[in-house]
Nucleic acid binder design. Sequence first.
DNA 1: TTGTACGCGTTATCAC
DNA 2: GTGATAACGCGTACAA
Lengths: 347, 347
Amino acid sequence: MKRVSIKDVAKAARVSHPTVSRALRNSPLVKAETSERIRRLAETMGYRPNVVARGLVTCKTWTIAAVVTTLADPFNGELLSGLEELATDRGYSVFVANCNADPDREIKAVRLFQERRVDGIVVMCSRVGVLYGPMLRELRIPIILVNSYYPNEFFNSIVINNPDASRQAVQHLIDLGHRRIAYIGDQYGLQSDTERFAGYREALELAGLPLSPELVVNGNGKADGGQQATERLLALPTPPTALFCYNDQTALGALSAIRHHGLRVPDDISVVGFDDLEVASYAHPPLTTVRQPRKLMGRMAMEMLLNLFSSRSTDQSHLKIPGELIVRESTAPLTAAPKSRKNTKRG
Amino acid sequence: MKRVSIKDVAKAARVSHPTVSRALRNSPLVKAETSERIRRLAETMGYRPNVVARGLVTCKTWTIAAVVTTLADPFNGELLSGLEELATDRGYSVFVANCNADPDREIKAVRLFQERRVDGIVVMCSRVGVLYGPMLRELRIPIILVNSYYPNEFFNSIVINNPDASRQAVQHLIDLGHRRIAYIGDQYGLQSDTERFAGYREALELAGLPLSPELVVNGNGKADGGQQATERLLALPTPPTALFCYNDQTALGALSAIRHHGLRVPDDISVVGFDDLEVASYAHPPLTTVRQPRKLMGRMAMEMLLNLFSSRSTDQSHLKIPGELIVRESTAPLTAAPKSRKNTKRG
DNA sequence: TTGTACGCGTTATCAC
DNA sequence: GTGATAACGCGTACAA
């Protein structure tokens, strides 16, 4: 009934358990034939080393943890995917925790993983990044922040250059002649939202355009939120002629709302998303958006951790990845007079 | 430098370390004021129990593992989300591993998690489910299969009723008058694909319709695969008038291909997906599809595990969830003569 | 080349 | 109520 341990194998092989340990880990110290014999025996006995016990003695658990705001979002999924791929390659298993953009849950998750003695933690879209500074001292666990950063603290981070990418995206709309450009943001106070809004504002300023408060609305990072926000915008006395959305899902909702309103994209309204999810290419019309190398970013986060593991140097780095504007068919030059089909009765 | 352990706290509190252990776990055996004193001391010393060590002695790690085919897919993300939510509620942390629908990687992942002494494993969309029977004997770890099942084996499973749901979906198309209905499948030999095809075939049989081999093609479960497969179908001498797709992403690609071909959905071709991802509602046109309660299914998988943990009974259960056909706007009655815009030159 | 003894940080089982 | 002491399953230093 009991599970077979290293001692059982040792007994069966008539050697000591350290010999079994050495044999199974290919130590050159043990005679080849003994090693082979032990190895075969362990196999037939169905012995599997207990990594938990090993972690206890080596002070290395070969586990890392990823804390995300939501697993249901394909954005995080791909981030996670890149992270997991490299982690697995290097022998690490990855824990995952959902915090629903709730700061309390985020902190709890990090503390829990500390108790689990993970070798490193990656927090994606942190809401409490700034708190990790003090925590880190006692935690003594490397933390990587993805999609948020606090340059003055003691951890590493990797983010897309949100202000710059957003500025480019909005500049693209301005270049097309648009003057009334709306921003549909998130609602959770994420740093990425703040920064994308900053880029939006900066682009307007550079072009000498006013920032109209009524053109800045909040979604929820998902399609339904984007749809509702867009409906509010379209109900305005003077609706915007272009929409810059916090992310692609928001933009997807915007497209839907615009269609229901009897307007056309990009003829009547231009729409820009952010992320370049797979659906962006397959939306109708295909979405102009900012590409984030999600999988790569996940991979880079793991690379940062591996660096921290190998070199005990505390050299912190804050990587800023440039976003790439992908122009597809949801943006077009401003036409002289945007006409609503509703008004013109299939005019 | 070293991490503070239970013994450090014991020394500081001038008690034995088992007393600290008891105090911190709210044992009624320890005097209230001692308990309180120890608790405060542990807090100020920044002590965090080592769950690894605890797991070693209690033979319970409070971890579970989820093995998925891909993390990048929103389908798995939501499954995982439901699983993780309940797991976290009950104090379990969840490992996640990606196996890319590769049987070897799937087996490796399961063995690895066995070495990590997880309390249970959930395998989603398994390709090697049938192999777990023998493994289970030696593994002695509860395994739940989600989206695949092998009724004669020793593990539990939970799946959508694929044949039935698919039959309904295809029946819906037949009811609309369609006779040439194509199936765009997956390519990895997943059980869900096989079953959905079976439902497709059954519906045709029931209606007395022939199964045309040229109308059965493979995608890859993603939009690009769906797009390419659809292009092949549209190139046929007599193209289908309706498409039943393995999943929503495939259907999304199909919509795109049909548009590029100058045809309209549902006027010229009807399209049905599977899963009811969020994008299904926001596609153009909104997609008729089969709803899978993904998050619930993830949650149920965890509930199954919890049951197995509490009752040591080996009562295996194989849950089959009914799928719900959601009719939206991508399906319509067959029109007399489907006209290609290409042929009729804006007809 | 192999074995002995010890420690990792807990919890469990006894004593007292 | 509390404290020794023994596990849990492994890796490692050192001895042989």
